[in-house]
């Protein structure tokens, strides 16, 4: 890993102090048992199959062609889209335009401080976002050009990737980039028999660890009008039938977000008309 000379970095072996507090003396199993009670109600009062409330706004960044801000529970994300520009350092002509995605956690967004440079998780998320958005954008409309999408996570309270994809979709739409459909995304966390829709940060981290044999996280993004899944990503250890069932749950949940994004985009269009 190249060293960042422009900024003052903390010592590499620094450890977040939370590891030493009493909270952390509980084993992950004990922590997990507190997440869901017998009636399938979670710590924050949601039912296991309930999505967090979403607040969305477009046109938050003046310099960008299109932008969106999303709050999904405590998760806060800004996405911005810039005008198509010629692809730098490219010699051959390509028929389809390209999408460049940059996903970044702000240094203060997670319990552990993130570095300014993209780490491997952020690179992975960028490439997932790129694949999800490429399927939604009419890339043949701007050959040899590139659209830049930048996403910054201000507060990561779980399901950051899917919130980022939804926000980026709204930002693309408000930027007037030709698209096939509105894109929405949703996350599911599974541990044993418990299936948690839209997990928060704690639920997400606990589902990544193998407390029970079956565990995992699934993220899908959906183009709702055409019933198409533009990207599907799963990690963990899950049997085939559980994954198949989860696709249906997530598909439904993604469809429920669509009216919200539509309203948000319509509002930005109306605001643009009244200005002129």
């Amino acid at each position: 890993m190249p060293i960042d000379h422009k900024r003052i970095n903390p010592p590499e072996d620094a450890v977040p102090y939370k590891l030493f507090t009493k909270l952390n003396t509980k084993s992950s199993q004990e922590q997990y048992q507190q997440i869901l009670d017998k009636n399938q109600i979670r710590k924050d009062g949601r039912h296991a199959s309930e999505h967090r409330k979403i607040y969305m706004k477009t046109g938050v960044i003046a310099h960008a062609k299109g932008s969106a801000y999303i709050e999904q529970g405590q998760t806060k994300i800004v996405a911005s889209v810039f005008d198509p520009r010629e692809i730098p350092n490219r010699l051959d002509y390509c028929l389809k335009g390209e999408v460049y995605c940059d996903f970044k956690f702000a240094p203060f967004s997670c319990p552990k401080r993130r570095l300014h440079q993209q780490d491997s998780q952020e690179k992975e998320y960028s490439s997932i976002m790129k694949k999800a958005l490429e399927a939604a954008i009419c890339r043949h409309e701007f050959p040899n050009f590139q659209v830049d999408v930048y996403v910054l996570v201000l507060h990561n309270a779980g399901s950051a990737l899917s919130a980022a994809i939804t926000a980026a979709g709204a930002a693309l739409a408000s930027a007037g980039i030709p698209m096939f459909d509105i894109i929405t995304s949703s996350t599911l966390a599974i541990q044993g028999k418990d299936v948690l829709l839209d997990p928060d940060f704690e639920e997400e981290t606990l589902s990544e660890i193998a407390i029970e044999k079956e565990h995992g996280i699934i993220v899908i993004s959906v183009l709702a009008t055409h019933d198409q899944i533009s990207h599907f990503h799963q990690v963990g250890n899950l049997p085939l039938n559980v994954v198949s069932d989860s696709i249906d749950i997530l598909h439904k949940s993604c469809k429920e977000i669509v009216p919200l994004v539509q309203k948000c985009v319509i509002r930005s269009v109306l605001a643009g008309i009244s200005e002129t």
Binding site: I128, K131, E134, A135, K213, E214, G216, L223, H226, D227, Q228, I229, S230, H231, F232, H233, Q234, V235, G236, N237, L238, P239, L240, V243, S244, I247, D248, H251
Partner: peptide, 19 residues
């Protein structure tokens, strides 16, 4: 068990096809 599923390349799937 499925340990990872991901899509490569662009393109989208109908839920039925994906299954």
């Amino acid at each position: 068990c499925l340990s990872t599923v991901l899509q490569t390349g662009t393109g989208s799937f109908h839920p039925k096809t994906l299954k």
